[in-house]
């Protein structure tokens, strides 16, 4: 076997070699921030599907189980969760459409790609407010 001992300095401590730079070294850009946001929102939605399952199973179980669940989603905390959840959902959707456009090789120019990343945030926020306004008005 080759010598696999870690290199040590004269004091006997292991030499800490520099690693390749990670996120914190780079200047934040819109495309980078929205790429990170796309992954975070995706993971959040992954956990959020448990709430969808809970709601549907409660509906199937009967009025006794549905009552508390419907009460929770109608409460302030429940509505806040639904509002944030819908924003995360629409953000991930618009981000996904942006990535699909890029997958086909369009919109890669510097100005265009930054504008597209910026639109993901603006568009998802506007769309979420619009959906909730329509839902409240139609009530």
């Amino acid at each position: 076997m080759a010598d696999t001992a870690r290199p040590t300095n004269p004091a006997g401590r292991p030499v800490v070699r520099p690693l390749s730079p990670h996120l914190q070294i780079y200047r934040w850009t819109w495309t980078m921030a929205m790429s990170v946001a796309h992954r975070i929102t995706g993971v959040a939605l992954y956990g959020g599907t448990a709430l969808l399952a809970l709601w549907l199973v409660a509906l199937a179980a009967g009025p006794g189980a549905y009552g508390p669940v419907a009460w929770f989603f109608g409460s302030f905390l429940g509505r806040l969760i639904l509002f944030v959840y819908s924003w995360i959902l629409l953000h991930h959707m618009l981000g996904g459409i942006r990535h699909l456009v890029w997958d086909f090789g369009h919109g890669m120019e510097p100005g265009t790609r930054i504008a597209m990343a910026r639109f993901t945030l603006i568009g998802s926020t506007a769309l979420t407010v619009l959906v909730w306004l329509v839902a409240l008005v139609a009530r």
Binding site: L59, P63, A70, L82, L89, M93, G96
Partner: peptide
């Protein structure tokens, strides 16, 4: 991802219609 776009939009509308309804209507 492509399939999710129309289905998620439909889901958002369904949830908005569901919210606050009594059990038999839901």
């Amino acid at each position: 991802a492509v399939a999710n776009v129309p289905l998620v939009l439909a889901f958002v509308v369904i949830v908005a219609l569901m919210a606050g309804r009594p059990y038999p209507e839901a």
